[in-house]
C-alpha cells in the first residue's frame, strides 16, 4: 500500500481535521487490522518469553530468566527421563525433506505446466481437469494405500519415499499455479525464439522460464513451507529416530502430555518456525505478484 499521507502544517488544525475526515476509513482499517492481529502477535511474544523464563506465575505469566530451555542447541535433551537425539539431525532431515520436495516440484511442474499451457495433444483437457480434482482430493484418504505401495517398494521409513508421496500430492496445485504464469507469456516470444533457432526444449529453458520466474518463486515457497511443516505423512511412514524431522521432534518433546516442559517446547517451536519466518520475509514480494486464476482456456 503506497498511500501518500499529506503532512499537516501545525498551524492549520482545521486542515488536520479535514485530513482526518478524508482518511478515517484508512484509520479504521489500521485499527481493525491491529485488533485482529494482536492476539497472534501476543502469542508469539508469550512463546518467546516462556522460552527464556524459569517458571510461570499462575501458569501463564513468564518470570525469571534462563537460557536453559535453549540448551538443545548445544547439548542432549532429556524429556520424561528419555534422552532425545540432537535436534540438528532432525533439522538437517527437515531441510533435506523440504528442499528436495521443492526441487522435485519445481522441475516437474515447470515442465508439466508448460506442456499443459502450450501444447495440444489428445487428453490435454482431461489432464487439466484431473489436476484440479486431484488437488481437491484429501491426501489423508490415501494413507493406507500409500503404506502398502511404499512397503512394496522398500521405501517405507525413508525420507525419500515420503518425499515422493508428498511431491505427488502437492504437484497438482503447483502445476495449476505455474500454468497460469505460462499462459501469460506471449506466443510471439516463443515463435520468435523458434525462428531464431531454438527447439522446443531450448525455447522452454532459455526464453520461457525466465518469464515465469515469479511463478517459480511462488511454487518454491509453497513447496518449501509445505515440506517444512509436513507432519502426518512423516508421522505415519517414518519409524526410525534418525529419520525424524522437526515436526516429529516437537511431538517427542511434548512426550506423554502429563509432564510437558513448556519452556523447552516453546524454545523448540521458535527454533522450528524461525527459518520459515525468515524465508517468508525474504520471498513475500514474489508471492504478492502471484495470479492464482490464470486459467485461460482450461
Amino acid at each position: 500500500m503506497n498511500m501518500v499521507v499529506k503532512k499537516t502544517p501545525p498551524v492549520a488544525r482545521d486542515s488536520f481535521l479535514k485530513t482526518l475526515q478524508k482518511k478515517w476509513h484508512l484509520l479504521l482499517a489500521y485499527l481493525l487490522l491491529t485488533i485482529f492481529s494482536l492476539p497472534i502477535g501476543l502469542m508469539f511474544l508469550w512463546l518467546f518469553l516462556t522460552s527464556i523464563s524459569t517458571h510461570t506465575i499462575a501458569g501463564v505469566i513468564p518470570a525469571g530468566f534462563t537460557l536453559e530451555h535453549w540448551s538443545f542447541l548445544w547439548g542432549p535433551v532429556e524429556v520424561g527421563g528419555r534422552v532425545l537425539p540432537s535436534i540438528w539431525q532432525a533439522t538437517w532431515n527437515t531441510i533435506l525433506f523440504a528442499g528436495g520436495l521443492t526441487i522435485f516440484e519445481v522441475i516437474i511442474s515447470t515442465m508439466a505446466g508448460y506442456t499443459l499451457s502450450r501444447m495440444n495433444f489428445p487428453g490435454r483437457k482431461l489432464m487439466l481437469r484431473s489436476v484440479l480434482i486431484l488437488h481437491a482430493f484429501p491426501g489423508v484418504l490415501l494413507l493406507i494405500a500409500i503404506f502398502y505401495v511404499l512397503n512394496a517398494l522398500g521405501l517405507i521409513d525413508t525420507l525419500w519415499g515420503v518425499m515422493l508421496v508428498k511431491v505427488a500430492l502437492q504437484i497438482p496445485l503447483s502445476i495449476y499455479i505455474i500454468k497460469g504464469f505460462f499462459d501469460e507469456v506471449s506466443w510471439d516470444i516463443e515463435w520468435a525464439a523458434l525462428v531464431d533457432g531454438c527447439n522446443r526444449l531450448t525455447v522452454w529453458y532459455q526464453v520461457i522460464l525466465p518469464q515465469v520466474k515469479p511463478g517459480i518463486a511462488a511454487i518454491s515457497i509453497f513447496s518449501f513451507i509445505a515440506g517444512w511443516s509436513e507432519f502426518l505423512l512423516l508421522f505415519t511412514f517414518i519409524f526410525s529416530e534418525h529419520n525424524n524431522t522437526l515436526a516429529i521432534y516437537l511431538l517427542a518433546i511434548i512426550g506423554d502430555f502429563r509432564v510437558v516442559n513448556y519452556g523447552l517446547l516453546a524454545a523448540a517451536a521458535l527454533f522450528y518456525i524461525f527459518p520459515v519466518l525468515l524465508f517468508f520475509l525474504f520471498t513475500q514480494k514474489f508471492l504478492m505478484k502471484m495470479n492464482m486464476g490464470g486459467g485461460k482456456q482450461v
Binding site: 510471439d188 516470444i189 515463435w191 525464439a193 523458434l194 525462428v195 531464431d196 533457432g197 525466465p210
Partner: peptide
C-alpha cells in the same frame, strides 16, 4: 522443415523482444 532449419528472420507486430 522446422523454423530453425529455414534460415529466416522475422519481425513480429509486438516485436517479441526477450524481456530478460
Amino acid at each position: 522443415l522446422e523454423p530453425k532449419e529455414r534460415n529466416i528472420g522475422m519481425v513480429f507486430q509486438s516485436y517479441a523482444l526477450y524481456p530478460h
